[in-house]
Nucleic acid binder design. Sequence first.
DNA 1: GACAGTCCTGTTTTT
DNA 2: CAGGACTGTC
Length: 724
Amino acid sequence: MNPNFLSDLNSAQHQAVTFTGGNLLVLAGAGSGKTRVLVHRIAWLLSQGASPQNILAVTFTNKAATQMRIRLEQMLQFSLASMWVGTFHGLAHRLLRLHWQEAGLVQSFQILDADDQTRLLKRIHKALSLDPEKWPVKQSQAFINGNKEKGLRYSEAATNGFVDPVLIRVYQAYENACSSSGLVDFAELLLRSYELWQNNQQLREQYQKRFGHILVDEFQDTNAIQYAWIKSVSSSDSNLTAVGDDDQSIYSWRGADSNNMQRLKSDYANVNVVRLEQNYRSTATILKAANAIITNNKSRLGKNLWTNCGDGDPIILYAAFNEIDEARYVVDKIQLWRKQGKALNEAAILYRSNAQSRVIEEQLLRAGIPYRVYGGMRFFERAEIKDVLAYLRLLVNRNDDAAFERVINLPTRGLGEAALVLLRNHARLHNCSLWKAGETMVATQQLPARATSALSGFMSLINDGSMQIAKLTLAELVQFIINLVGLHEHYSKPQYQEYKQSRLENLDELINAAGQFSTLVSEDDRQLLLNAFLAHVALEAGEHLDKDDSNNCVQLMTLHAAKGLEFSLVFLCGMEEGLFPHIMSMGSKEELEEERRLCYVGMTRAKQKLYMSCADSRQLHGSTNLRQPSRFLREIPPELIKSDTLINSVKPALFEDLSQDLSHGQDVSQGNDFYLGQNVSHQEFGEGVITSFEGHGEHTWVRVKFRKVGSKLLSPEYIRGRVI
DNA sequence: GACAGTCCTGTTTTT
DNA sequence: CAGGACTGTC
């Protein structure tokens, strides 16, 4: 290692990296070199004699964990294999695989992802005959996950305040189903491994002793169970380093509690605090604007981010006429950026919700600009992929009812709802899995003749497959299953024609992924390798397709997904009331403050140029509606903003506060672009004002309220704009 | 039992 | 607009 690796740190960073007094809380503002401090600190600890296996480094996302690994590998010469670096969920899973017996699990336990969980709960609701109107599955799901995140089992869930007994019953039934199927959901990974430590003093002490240095990234995002998990592996001799920024806490809807940062001070002895307040990322203008916004939040620890960078360009605001116009504007600016010879992957388009990406994608496609969308439907969440994975899960564990239900009739083999009802009843009666129920019912001929033969065919298919595990490589096994089951034929059926191509490609990609995975994991036991692969795909649902990461693509993602990243050029789209802040998060002060933090996170991703845009009207859920610009826009000091828009006459109040400073850009209403509230004239009907747009694209109609003849719906070609 | 067609409703962020 | 629930036909 370069002995001078500390020389490029500022004094606060240096202090954090080389701290020796026990526990440390690093308050690290956006762009203040947080990851750098963590990585350097680990390197420094190793240089001071700590062994890699003494270190536990926890991050929140897979992306951050990978990043940390890569940076460490660059700095150090030796292997990191014995160092525990990963996400909370990944590490908890690792622990449970090592101690499955003590944790009361079966060795072949599998991870239940959110989608599997929904399906399972749906079945449970049905079994309990719950009226879906009165008892939505989503509610149960939130209830169960919320309680697990607080560390509460169903027996404890009722203890604080009134809880409807129905929810407790669902929770209980769900727990039973999971444990009899050998399934563990995301929250369960943490809760179960926490309980493992709590109930097993010897094991706990073993790990406490091992992990002399515990480092936690994004500490503001920890929830109760994650906090307890960390606490339980900490001893009085451990050294905890927690890094976080309360202004970037954006996951409270998932149980995260940034108060955990303060809680440290009372739960741990002698917590030293280091503040990183120098920002190395953004221009002063961007930073000032972001600071101005976040200052409106009441509940914050408070800090003062500053920078040495120059002012840079003003933030550019564009009020589009609709979402298509907004997308076109963004694409125009990206083309300009490209013409200047700048890298496309330094440009990011950020939005509040995934649904917003489609319109932008269309415009990028039309302009021939390569792009990459993060999030949305991920690779391992695709139906055809999950189908194959369900087969693999059954090979590993016949009692996996969730997998069983998924593929019992895929491709259709005459085992529909009626047969399943019989199986489920038998399974419930005898308290066994669907597979076992099937075995019994086939043997004792308790099913109609047709179903019996279909079911025994299905079961021998699975049995045949599982004999191959030891013989084939992982990739060969996946291929084998696809062939055995006849998935190519299945997806080639006429009703799937539309997606056939991409589905078959995805199946090939899965074979590919399986092959790659085997080369990455050193596991000789094929059974364990398959287990590891299944866990891998559940925990990292698809960012693995990063093979073209070096590609020069524009990056599209939600604001949440952008946390921790930085780009030279950033677009924040859909800055509208109801969209951002989101309508579902406008109900309380707390939610609104979280939206504001999200805005802060988004803005501070930008290094040089920041564009923010909103639309006058937007098509949402099938209908077009009028929008108001986001309150966040008004919280930015006007002198930091330049408008690229002709001021909209119908909504002068929008930019009231900014108006003196808005430079009147070029008229964007030239050509066919009209805007709401525009004064127009018509040969026959006279003068009027545009009140709405209907339809979209080439088929946009304009509703005009005429002074004399009232409201009319017209094709835009018959009206003329009059610039006032 | 399978499947196609119709009606209806609910809209966020993710390990 | 899309996905899910429900209905009717083969």
